[in-house]
Nucleic acid binder design. Structure first.
Lengths: 337, 337
DNA sequence: TTGTACGCGTTATCAC
DNA sequence: GTGATAACGCGTACAA
């Protein structure tokens, strides 16, 4: 029993069913006028021929592909891997297909036009580090674009992000309440809004208690650089008594350096806080205090935002912020009540 | 400066350049007969109009979409996240677009036809756990299909996987050489070839020294279940002195249980070995001995296999195996030389 | 080398 | 309700 090597078209179904191509088309178009009788005959013929409508042809005719482009990157970071899965899931729920572009490749510039050439209806960019220039190029193509976990200063493109400032503030409050005074920050990449805002939130929160961030290093959002940054910070004198990292991966790097290399007890000698509440953060060996970004909600909002633009056709820029929640675990001291 | 809201076609370019549509088409078709003169004029006109060929229309005309479907799953497992990134990168290198399907969603059955309706030229399935039935459905659609990290008994569909048997054997040799005799195994999902083969390799390797696997639990390839499985194993009497897990994530779960709950010293009291050599396995806090699958090579082979089928049109079933390498770290004792 | 004409599979429009 | 017919944007024999 071999399947249909050759592609079978609506014309053949029409012929077999003894109707016109239009009838076939209507049968497969939800909410179109077809009598029960013809519908039945068409479906029967389609079944026999293993027919199913050609989405490519439909796209051409409808001038809309039903495809959404996702430009992913940093899939080695669990947060972005999970984000991709969540976005895909949401888009699939809305019946959109997904054209994936992984941006870690060098020749990204040539890949974007390629994505566009497939007539994607819209684009989602879940990325802290993609050049902002890219978003503008996409926007210029006339399709709705939504940035996730990052925004642009000039607000020229829609975005959904977590409340990074609020998250940073919550961390500040926790650290101060648990007796810390020398608080350091490990940033991600400098030009990302997420890292910048988390730092700002921390600074603001500390300022309320007359404290300033005592030191700062950059960790590029990855484990290795995070470890290096921590090494720098912990070599200072006086040593910080708390480190807030712009994401979990860096925090785990810092945690390792603190325990393994400096023999510090966490949280007695040093408190460490991450950001993202990735699955690993909850594992017994880490028990990392962190901030939950509510990744699922972010994905939902992003897709909703995009789908709304797609359905209604209006093209307003919108900027949504999803609240963040502090998750206390074992890398910070218990807060006195 | 707004971009082209309306889609611009080759006809308009042709008119502006004073040539026929064919000339435009040829200009954008690598290796077609166009004089330098016309090519220049066409490109100039195209530039002015911001024209770029419509891949959807081309697909319809050429009866080939240039799209490859990837059905991903378990993106929370770093191995599969990395695999997706690597496959994408390779496909992009070969100039293929990627239609992504994330299979964790419930209504997968309705999603596959959707994928097919976009006329993907081929499909890659990087998945240990996807139902084998699905692969057959895809195969039946007449498109080349490549399974990654899994194969089917009846060999009816092409595949690329790691040398799981060899990897298991290498682990057995290491454990025996470092003095272990009571060796347990934590399996992934039972019906997956990868888990099955790793166990078989272990069993074979041990058998050479007259040893049998002393106990076995199932951990579903995830951290939580891996921890539960380890809890079971370590509660037995006599306690195993080594545990081999079918992947790293489960091994890290086991490691935590051993250290935190049972207060065991690793590797003195208990050796633990994982599989995948994921990035986390190398982190200082884990230092997990594991087996490197050479994920990059697997992805390369898979794409090569598919692209070859696509270009040449021949449809032979092929089964490739990528060698695995043991990576010794701190969760096993030093091997005496 | 260039242009004409047709086909790709579908949907939209309009008479019937 | 139904069936011709014209788009949709492009590749490509074929003839010139």
């Amino acid at each position: 029993m071999k399947g249909p090597k050759k592609t079978v078209s609506s014309a053949e179904v029409a012929r077999l069913a003894g109707v016109s191509r239009s009838a076939v088309s209507r049968t497969f178009t939800p909410g179109a006028y077809v009598s029960e009788e013809t519908r039945r005959r068409v479906l029967e013929a389609a079944e026999m021929l293993h027919y199913s409508p050609n989405a490519i042809a439909r796209s051409l005719s409808k001038k809309s592909s039903g495809l959404v482009g996702i430009i992913a990157s940093n899939l080695d970071n669990p947060f972005y891997a999970a984000m991709l899965a969540e976005l895909s899931s949401q888009l699939q729920r809305h019946d959109y297909g997904i054209l994936l572009l992984v941006a870690d490749s060098p020749k990204l510039d040539t890949l974007i036009p390629k994505l566009l050439s497939y007539q994607v209806d819209g684009v989602i960019l879940p990325a802290a580090t993609l050049s902002s220039q890219m978003a503008v190029i996409l926007q210029r193509s006339g399709r709705p674009v939504v940035l996730v976990n990052r925004y642009l200063r000039d607000e020229v493109v829609s975005s959904v992000s977590g409340d990074n400032v609020g998250g940073g503030r919550a961390v500040a409050e926790l650290l101060v309440a648990t007796g810390h005074r020398r608080i350091a920050f490990i940033a991600g990449q400098d030009d990302t809004s997420s890292s910048r805002d988390r730092q700002q939130g921390l600074a603001e929160g500390l300022a309320r208690h007359g404290i300033a961030i005592c030191a700062r290093e950059t960790g590029q959002f990855n484990h290795h650089q995070g470890a290096i940054a921590a090494r720098q910070l912990l070599s200072r004198y006086p040593r910080p008594d708390a480190i807030f990292c712009a994401n979990d991966v860096m925090a785990m790097g810092a945690l390792e350096v603190a325990k393994v290399e400096f023999g510090l007890r966490v949280p007695e000698d040093l408190a460490i806080v991450g950001y993202d509440n990735s699955e690993q953060a909850g594992w017994p060996l880490h028990q990392l205090t962190t901030v939950d970004q509510h990744l699922g909600a972010m994905a939902r909002e992003a897709v909703e935002l995009l789908v709304d633009r797609l359905r209604t056709g209006h093209d307003g820029i919108e900027h949504r912020i999803v609240p963040a929640t502090l998750v206390q675990r074992a890398t910070t001291r218990r807060r006195p009540d």
